[in-house]
Amino acid sequence: MRLLGKVGSIGAVAAAVLLMAGCGSSSDTKADSTTTAASSAAQATTAALSTGRECTADDVKVDGGFGTAPKITIPTDCDPPKTLIVKDLVAGSGPGAQAGQQLTMNYTLITWSDKKKLDSSFDRGETFPLNLGAGEVIKGWDQGLIGVQQGARRLLIVPPNLGYGAGGHGIKPNETLVFVTDAVKVG
C-alpha cells in the first residue's frame, strides 16, 4: 500500500459542509449545543492525555543505518510536535534536492497514536520515485525533503496539517506521521 499520494478533493468536502450548513431547521440549535459539548469533551480528554511537553527529533529513537529497514521507537512521555520536524540521521553527499527534481526514496512510516508501522518501501523491496515539490506526495514530504542529499537518512515528523489531516489512505484523522527516509538517488 502506498500512502504518500494526495488526499481526495478538498472541494468536495467543502461543498458537503456548505450543503449541510444550508439545511437548517429548528433543531439546529440543539444539534449545535450537542456538537459544542462533544467538542469540549474531546478537548478536555486531549488535554488530560497531554504530557505538557512537545517531543523533538531527539526524543524519537531510530536504529539502523542507511539502506536497512529502520526500527523506530516513538516516546510516550511527550506530545507529538505541532510543526514539521526534519533531522538528518545519516549525512549524505552532493547537492541538496530542490523543487522540481526527481528523487528515489526508501521509507518506513510509523503512526504516532498507536506507534505501529503502517507502510515501508523497505519491506516491499522497492524504492519510491517522486518529483519533489510537484504535489505528488503529502506536503510534509514536499517540504521536508528539500535539501536532502543522496545517501542521507532523514527523519520527518509530520503534523496532521502537512499529512492527511482529516484522515484517509488508512490514516486516522489528525494523525502525526513519523517517517524515516533514505535518499537513494537525488536528481
Rank of each mutant, 00 (worst) to 15 (best):
G170A: 05
K185Q: 13
G168W: 06
G187Q: 06
G167A: 00
N174G: 04
H169C: 00
L177T: 09
V148P: 02
I138T: 14
L162T: 03
L132D: 00
E136S: 09
K139S: 13
L130A: 13
T181I: 14
V184Q: 11
P173Y: 00
H169E: 11
K185N: 03
L162Y: 14
A134D: 14
V186T: 10
I146A: 11
I138K: 11
L156Y: 12
G168M: 08
L177W: 02
Q149R: 11
G163K: 01
P159Q: 09
I171H: 09
N161T: 02
K185G: 05
I138G: 13
I171Y: 07
G151N: 04
P173G: 01
K185E: 11
T181C: 13
G167S: 04
L177R: 11
T181A: 04
V180C: 00
P129E: 01
G140Y: 12
A152Q: 12
G168H: 02
L145A: 10
E175T: 04
L130N: 08
N174R: 01
V178S: 01
I171K: 01
I138M: 07
R154A: 11
Q143E: 08
L155C: 06
G140R: 15
H169S: 06
K139V: 12
G144M: 08
I138L: 14
E136C: 06
A183V: 03
Y164H: 12
R153Q: 08
K185C: 01
T181W: 10
Q149G: 06
G170R: 06
T176E: 15
K139C: 13
L162K: 11
L162Q: 15
G167K: 01
W141Q: 13
A183F: 09
G170C: 08
K139H: 10
I157N: 12
G167C: 04
L145R: 12
Q150F: 06
E175G: 01
G144S: 09
N174F: 00
T176Q: 08
R154E: 07
P159K: 10
P159S: 04
T176L: 10
G140I: 15
N131K: 13
T176C: 06
L145Q: 02
W141N: 08
Q150P: 06
R153G: 04
G151Y: 05
G147S: 05
H169A: 05
A166R: 07
T181M: 03
P173S: 03
A166Y: 00
V137H: 15
L132H: 03
T176W: 09
N161C: 07
P160K: 07
G165S: 13
